[in-house]
Computed example of a mutant assay.
Amino acid sequence: MSGLRLAYICRHPVKSVGYEEIERVALTAGHPLPFDRNWAVSHEAAGFDQPDGWQPKLKFVRGWAEGSLQAIRAEFDDATRRITLSHPARPDLTALLPEDGPALVDWLRPLWPERRPAPAALVARRDGGALTDVPEPYLSILSLSSNRALGQRLGQDLSIHRWRGNLWLDGLAPWEEFDLIGRTLAIGTARLTIEQRITRCRATCANPETGRTDADTLGALEEGYGHIDFGVYARVIQAGDITRGDPVEIVT
């Protein structure tokens, strides 16, 4: 397929607490996107101190429970592990991870509803893995044309950051990404195999600019297409460097 390219690379160093776009990254076989969901904020009902391995998303503070979190933006420095968080309703916070975890949790508390278990601690897996929504070491691949198609159905532009994806492709037909399951993509010097669709939650209904719920993304998916899936999960099978703007080739 000609004209297919990598339009955006996005990551979320702290699960549900900020998104950012990056220009390039080195992928490792069998691992998710580097510094994507390396940390998460547990709540008081989580039942652990620091998790030994993967834990389900219901153990953490996340946008499903409070859409305002969707408006947090992040700037993360890989070398120093220093993160700056911003939100329309909060002063900016700059913190060193994980040392300044308590300050990050305190910054987050005013955005979290009192009716839910309170934010407790910044946590990371003891085995060094990511705290993504699924236990497999996936990264997510999404399509700009599918996002545009859904936005047209809703009558509004949809920010790509509603979906908390990793790699955004430009040049697919709407929903063609679902047809790539079982296929392998070449991006830069890396190779990725597409394995399954991603089922979505109501966090995607919140606007990442304002944090307010303003689009029934799930209803539009269900009514228009008979499902609530958006994007696909992929596994890195060959390490390599990828850069925004790279051509993408379907190799098998």
Rank of each mutant, 00 (worst) to 15 (best):
S2D: 15
G3E: 08
G3Y: 07
L6G: 14
L6Q: 11
Y8G: 05
Y8A: 10
R11P: 02
H12C: 06
G18L: 01
E21A: 10
I22F: 04
A26S: 15
L27E: 14
L27M: 09
G30W: 02
H31C: 13
L33V: 03
F35P: 06
D36V: 01
A45W: 01
A45D: 05
F48P: 02
F48Q: 04
D49W: 11
W54G: 04
Q55P: 00
P56R: 07
L58K: 04
L58E: 12
L58V: 12
K59M: 11
F60A: 00
R62H: 09
A65V: 08
A65Q: 15
A65R: 09
E66N: 12
E66M: 10
G67P: 12
S68W: 14
S68L: 15
Q70C: 13
I72F: 00
R73N: 04
D77H: 01
T80H: 03
R82D: 13
T84L: 00
P88E: 00
R90G: 05
R90K: 08
R90P: 08
P91M: 02
D92W: 02
D100Q: 11
D100K: 14
G101A: 03
D106W: 05
L108N: 01
R109C: 02
L111M: 01
P113Y: 07
P113V: 09
R115S: 13
R115W: 09
R115M: 08
A118R: 10
V123F: 00
A124W: 01
D127G: 03
A130H: 02
V134D: 14
E136L: 02
E136P: 01
S140I: 09
I141Y: 04
I141K: 05
R148V: 14
G151A: 03
Q152A: 14
D157Q: 14
L158C: 10
S159H: 13
R164H: 00
R164I: 00
G165E: 10
N166T: 11
W168L: 15
W168K: 10
L169Q: 02
G171A: 07
L172T: 08
A173R: 13
A173W: 06
E177W: 00
F178A: 01
D179Y: 08
L180W: 10
R183Y: 04
L185C: 01
I187G: 03
G188W: 09
E195R: 04
Q196R: 08
R197A: 09
R202T: 14
A203P: 12
T204Q: 05
C205F: 09
N207Y: 13
E209Q: 12
G211R: 06
T213N: 06
D214F: 02
D216L: 04
A220V: 11
A220P: 10
E222K: 15
E222M: 15
E222I: 13
G224L: 08
Y225S: 11
Y225G: 12
H227G: 06
H227M: 02
V232R: 04
A234K: 07
I237T: 15
I237Y: 11
A239I: 08
G240D: 14
G240F: 06
D241E: 15
D241H: 14
I242V: 15
G245D: 14
P247E: 14
